[in-house]
């Protein structure tokens, strides 16, 4: 099992682009498809993954206690009530940043690998020690970015660092896509972002108010019954990650109203 476990770093460079939301939704979606999945909060400074999963009240031990041998791994893991295939290993307190070494993270991910098919590591923002620790624990990476200057720039720096490591493959998820703004060319297009970062595109996630609502409730969208644009995208990313041959959601097909059609007409190349 340990050999086949996919340990995936979810990183972005810039903060607030949707790493944690992607980790939570992808974690639920993968678990729901039958794969045992662990999500590891590697953001010790500003941990939030527990909140997004609605598990903040159930944390007893953290990754720190596992490393200090204060508890066994399965005592620290918080299993999700509604999705028993998913477990969270919570981040320790921020002081861990002072002594934590890449080897420590590696140790944690190795222990998790023995029990799970997927280990998703929610990486802290920035390119400093916290990022490098998380990097050491992973075999592949998903870079999350928004179609926006600062996010793409920071993603590029992260990719520069990932390229000097053994991480492979490195795939791209473009988050918070607004089809209407792309159609009116007031937002960098998917092709622009992918072309600039030159990474294989794993998927896109549409901008969606439901993301905020689901965070309020502590229930990732992929766990809910409703239909929402972002949920559809998260499921699409999850399927593509597990090797299913499904096409990436195309924002050009997402706006179905007359206005959207008009916007597309305006995009026609005249010369």
């Amino acid at each position: 099992m340990a050999e086949n476990t996919r340990t995936i770093l979810i990183c972005s460079g810039k903060g607030g682009v949707g790493k944690t939301t992607l980790t939570a939704n992808l974690g639920i979606a993968l678990a729901n498809s039958g794969a045992t999945t662990a999500v590891l909060d590697a953001d010790f400074g500003l941990r939030n993954l527990d909140l997004l999963l609605g598990l903040e009240n159930r944390i007893v031990y953290t990754a720190q206690d596992v490393l200090d041998k204060n508890c066994r791994l399965d005592q620290a893991l918080v299993r999700h009530k509604k999705e028993p295939n998913l477990a969270l290993l919570p981040a320790g307190d921020p002081r861990m940043l002072d002594w934590m070494k890449p080897e420590d993270m590696k140790k944690i991910s190795e222990v998790l690998s023995e029990k799970f098919d997927f280990v998703l590591v929610d990486c802290p923002a920035g390119v400093e020690d916290g990022f490098k620790n998380a990097l050491a624990a992973c075999k592949e990476a998903i870079v999350v970015t928004n179609p926006e200057l600062s996010a793409v720039r920071d993603a590029d720096r992260v990719i520069g660092i990932l390229n000097t490591s053994d991480i492979e493959p490195i795939q791209l998820v473009i988050n918070r896509v607004r089809p209407n703004m792309m159609a009116s060319q007031e937002m960098l297009s998917i092709e622009d972002v992918q072309g600039i970062l030159s990474l294989p595109l794993l998927g896109i996630v549409l901008e969606d108010e439901q993301v905020i609502i689901s965070t309020n409730r502590g229930e990732p969208l992929t766990l809910t019954d409703g239909r929402s644009p972002a949920k559809k995208c998260y499921l699409n990313v999850s399927q593509r990650l597990t090797g299913k041959d499904v096409p990436i959601i195309d924002p050009k097909n997402e706006g179905k109203s007359l206005k959207d059609k008009f916007m597309r007409l305006m995009q026609t190349k005249v010369f």
């Binding site: 060319q185 622009d192 600039i196 995009q267």
Partner: peptide, 24 residues
């Protein structure tokens, strides 16, 4: 694009995505 052409004819600024791409 058609949009760029109309913008040019009306003397408006080009779409910001182009500016973003170039700056990036």
């Amino acid at each position: 694009t058609l949009r760029d052409l109309i913008n040019k004819l009306l003397g408006r600024e080009t779409a910001s995505a182009n500016t973003a791409r170039e700056r990036l």
